[in-house]
């Protein structure tokens, strides 16, 4: 048999294969539990939230930046929407103002990130870590640190709990956002500029690209999708709570990195990032089904992230043609 050919075939759809193998393993390990309609639906529901986030957070990642505030922004946006709806006595106007206000909040946080990164040169890691805490504080203040239930009205509950053609509405939102994000990144000047600035900011500046503007828009996009995800999450849970999206920053980063986005910028795609979200969702679901206590989930997921990033860095290093191969030195000898 032609080994190279098989390698090539496997390599091209490598990502899909990893997912298939994991799902197959889970099906065998948990017969009659993993591969059921209700379980798959539950996986889809959980990934729809960070799937939505990924669609916007990929922008700063492509620029070589980062957004660590998405979980906090989601919580604050959800809290804003729910408290607004409750205060407006569950009216439709309340829903409109609540949702619009929540989204605006996300955009404002993103705008602040973009301005501080471009005007003051503060590293994105630092500023978004700071706003993570600030915005989380806002979420706590909005909710008074309580669980605020919100079972009505139907229009709001539909966002996260409704179905369209038998598929949860949140999945539709995710799909919609993914398409929008895909179109922006591949079909518009903005998208081209994002990849270009992420790949070489100085060359872009000398080519007349308005890289500051591009950067600001990228952070706004990330804030917007985080807020949208938070509102959908609040609707899904029918409540607002400051801790609603705790740890989601990690999910989103994991999904992006596992999906092959480079933290150095310039590389990554929405489709692969959504795939990453699937993988994270499936792994998490599997851990739960196997009865592993949730305390261990974080540990496991972070190991996955580190492994993915290390592999990414290693492959990049090898591609760069430098001779030292680090940990994988012996294996790299042949190439």
């Amino acid at each position: 048999m032609n080994k190279d050919k098989i390698k090539k075939m496997l390599g091209r759809s490598q990502r899909l294969w990893i997912l298939v193998v994991i799902m197959l393993a889970l099906t065998l390990l948990q017969p009659g539990v993993f591969l059921t309609v209700s379980n798959i639906r539950s996986i889809l529901l959980s990934i729809s939230i960070y799937g939505i986030m990924v669609c916007g957070t990929i922008f700063p990642i492509l620029l070589g930046g980062i957004d660590l505030s998405v979980g906090a922004v989601a919580a604050a946006a959800g809290a804003f929407a729910v408290t607004r709806i409750v205060a407006d006595d569950y009216s439709t106007t309340g829903v409109i103002i609540g949702v619009a206000g929540g989204l605006a909040l996300g955009c404002i946080v993103g705008l602040v990130h973009g301005l501080i990164v471009t005007q003051f040169g503060v590293p994105a890691f630092l500023i978004t870590l700071a706003t993570q805490n600030i915005v989380y504080g806002i979420a706590q203040i909005l909710t008074g640190n309580n669980v605020i239930p919100c079972m009505k009205p139907e229009s709001f509950a539909f966002l996260g709990g409704g179905r369209l053609l038998g598929i949860p509405f949140s999945i539709w939102i995710m799909a919609f956002m993914a398409v929008i994000s895909y179109l922006i990144l591949t079909r518009t000047v903005l998208g081209r500029d994002v990849y270009a600035v992420g790949g070489n900011p100085e060359a872009c500046r000398l080519s007349g690209v308005r890289s500051r503007l591009v950067t600001i828009i990228a952070y706004v996009a990330s804030g917007f999708t985080a807020a949208l995800a938070g509102i959908v999450l609040a609707s899904m849970n029918r409540q607002a709570i400051a801790k609603a999206a705790q740890g989601y920053d990690n999910f989103v980063l994991t999904a992006l990195v596992v999906g092959g986005a480079s933290l150095m910028g310039g590389e990554g795609s929405v489709a692969a990032a959504i795939w990453g979200a699937f993988l994270v969702g499936v792994v998490q679901n599997g851990l739960r089904l196997m009865g592993i206590a949730s305390d261990y989930h974080g540990i496991f997921k972070c190991i996955v992230v580190v492994a993915a990033v290390a592999l990414d860095a290693h492959v990049r290093y090898k591609k760069s043609g430098l001779k030292k191969g680090g940990f994988f030195k012996k294996k790299a000898k042949v190439s």
Binding site: R192, Y195, A196, G199, N200, E202, A203, L206, G266, E267
Partner: peptide, 14 residues
Amino acid sequence: RNQGFTPLLSIEKN
């Protein structure tokens, strides 16, 4: 290398 082009992008996109 540092100022002229974006290495990951195609000729067309540069």
